[in-house]
Simulated scan of single mutants.
Amino acid sequence: MAIEGPQLPVGTQVVLRVAGSDDVGGTAQRGATGRISGVTANGRYDVRLVDGRSTTARRDQLSLRTAYQDEAIEVAAPDVLVRERTIYAAVVGSRAFGLDTDASDTDTRGVYVAPTEAFWSLAKPPTHVDGPEPEWFSWEVERFCELALKANPNLLEVLHSPLVVTCKPLGQELVDLREAFLSQLAYQTYSGYVLSQFKKLEADFRRDGAPKWKHVMHLIRLLLSARTLLAEGKLVVDVGDDRERLLAVKAGALPWDEVERWRLGLHEDLDRALQKTVLPATPDVAKVDAWLRSVRRISVA
């Protein structure tokens, strides 16, 4: 049985969230500390405890050591916030981009609203939650707005995904507000990220003879999306007619030089689009802030 979701690497320091049997017939107590030493055939983690004993545990029975103390004073379980207070969620990634294959994961991203009173507590609600379902990641609404206002592509695409999973009334208000997040900051965030990542990919190419082609494909896709955003003032998630060429990049079917020319041409397109863009220089922070304040007022438990 394979482990669902991101795996904990061997050597990761963890804390047991529940007691369990050890390898010498005793009990590994809740709160015991150890390191991941492997994965069992049935999908559990082998944990080597600090006293030399070993035990096994499921992922949900383990906490990262660095997070355990924070979890100990949590008032509300993060899973509850996602399950009960999500206002919007959508599928992102290859399925939303129109680049999916039979082997593609279904990646879902959501936004939840923590009760306003939770911010008055010693233990503040989490700014994000990984889970509770596999490939599901969520942000608390305030953190989501902060990152989206900075033109973070991952968050902007959530609001423009054609594959909506959940949309409550507050979620619809957030979607209706999505144009307020768009600005010329996208030029820096999109092109800057691609430039930094391509430097790493070029190093991979020189060292290994080939880059990570799937990553290359998604970087080109980001530039295509940014070009439309700057030129037309709208964010289009589906790649449309570029699908086959992008999948050829993913398969490593295009020579690196051709991909590099495509990338450089797209950067030039972005430069030209920026000169004529209809997007404002900065996002409408006041409009988003006013909406967030209204959400906090009506979310007093």
Rank of each mutant, 00 (worst) to 15 (best):
L170M: 14
G20H: 04
R178T: 04
L195P: 02
G25I: 05
I298W: 03
E71L: 12
E173V: 02
A103R: 15
G31H: 04
V50M: 05
V82H: 02
V237D: 02
F119G: 09
G26T: 12
E260Q: 12
A148P: 05
K234Q: 14
K200W: 00
A301F: 15
I3D: 04
V47W: 12
A180G: 01
P255M: 06
R207N: 11
Q13S: 09
Y190V: 10
V14I: 11
L247N: 03
P280A: 03
S191V: 07
P132N: 01
T40R: 06
P78F: 01
R30L: 03
L201H: 12
D238H: 13
V285Q: 10
A301Q: 14
Q13M: 04
S138E: 07
E74C: 10
V194M: 03
E142H: 15
K168C: 06
V237I: 11
V300Y: 12
R35S: 06
P153K: 05
I87M: 10
L292A: 09
G5S: 01
V80K: 14
V285C: 04
V164E: 07
F97W: 05
K250I: 00
L230A: 04
L264V: 12
E71V: 07
Q7M: 12
S161G: 02
D51N: 15
P115D: 14
E157Q: 05
A253Y: 02
H267E: 14
R143A: 14
P132K: 07
A28K: 03
K168F: 05
V216N: 04
F205N: 12
P6F: 08
V10Y: 11
A28D: 07
P162L: 00
R30C: 04
L195H: 10
E133V: 09
A41C: 05
H218R: 04
L229I: 00
R35A: 07
T189E: 09
C145V: 09
A57R: 12
V129R: 14
L279G: 07
F97L: 08
S225A: 09
V239C: 12
P78D: 08
R243S: 06
D79N: 15
G192R: 06
D284N: 13
T27R: 08
A103Y: 14
T12P: 07
G98T: 05
N42P: 03
V300Q: 11
G209L: 13
S94E: 00
A290D: 10
V50L: 11
L219Q: 14
A28R: 00
A123H: 14
G93S: 12
L224H: 12
V295Y: 00
P280R: 02
L230P: 13
I3A: 03
L122I: 13
A96K: 10
K150L: 03
A76W: 07
L49P: 08
P162K: 01
G131N: 06
R48V: 10
H128D: 15
L16Y: 02
R272Y: 00
L174G: 13
T277D: 11
V300N: 07
